[in-house]
Nucleic acid binder design. Sequence first.
DNA 1: ATATATTTGCAACTCAGTTGCATTAACAAT
DNA 2: ATTGTTAATGCAACTGAGTTGCAAATATAT
Lengths: 113, 113
Amino acid sequence: MHLFEAKDCAITAIDLVDRLDQQMNKTTVYRILDRLENSGVVHSFIGRDGLKWYAKCKGCSSGHHIDAHPHFQCKVCGKVDCLDLKISIPEVKNYKIDSVEIFLTGKCSDCTE
Amino acid sequence: MHLFEAKDCAITAIDLVDRLDQQMNKTTVYRILDRLENSGVVHSFIGRDGLKWYAKCKGCSSGHHIDAHPHFQCKVCGKVDCLDLKISIPEVKNYKIDSVEIFLTGKCSDCTE
DNA sequence: ATATATTTGCAACTCAGTTGCATTAACAAT
DNA sequence: ATTGTTAATGCAACTGAGTTGCAAATATAT
């Protein structure tokens, strides 16, 4: 049932909806994604185009996602990867920081000729 | 004409559209924002809700925005600020990084009781 | 004054995501 | 097994930010 989250890189919600079109309804996909996110199986983030991306969690727990790992989108092929990289955000005066989201763009190795 | 970008913190596109409803058309606002962004006067980023935010640039040049400064949204009041903070992203093997976008959430000083 | 290019307004459209509601499936309890 | 209750699904209609096409208006140049 929830097995379809075995993708290694990130995927957009609509992409999943389209891919599962034969098997289940749009609404159902969105609802399952919500549930998976709340239970800490996947995490989501918003790309520069405003689309919602999903990727499976490694170090996240339900309720609190460790969002500190950056996401990288290749400008050429459009693929999005979770980078296994720890970025530390310094304390900022007057701001109590709860969550961190980092979105990088550039060129992935596949597209670097 | 372009003077309305004197806001100190960030503002959403729709918010601007609504605020300027009496003075100009929705489409015009979006087009002016596009132009302002391309000419390096403002920069834009996408919030967790998928909305487009705009804020005026300090160290950006047209064509290449210095996006390395983080944006912070207060979970209580919803306000978004540009933080004057330089985050360095380490080199990552197999990834050529062009742009960096950092979105933080938490509590701002106004909302910390 | 005429021609050309740029800017604006309006309406209709797009499309990712949501909502309401009826239907079905899952699971208990008697 | 049968009824009752809860959760999961499907479908259609909606929402709302952002876009597009095109005509009208303004500006700029010749």
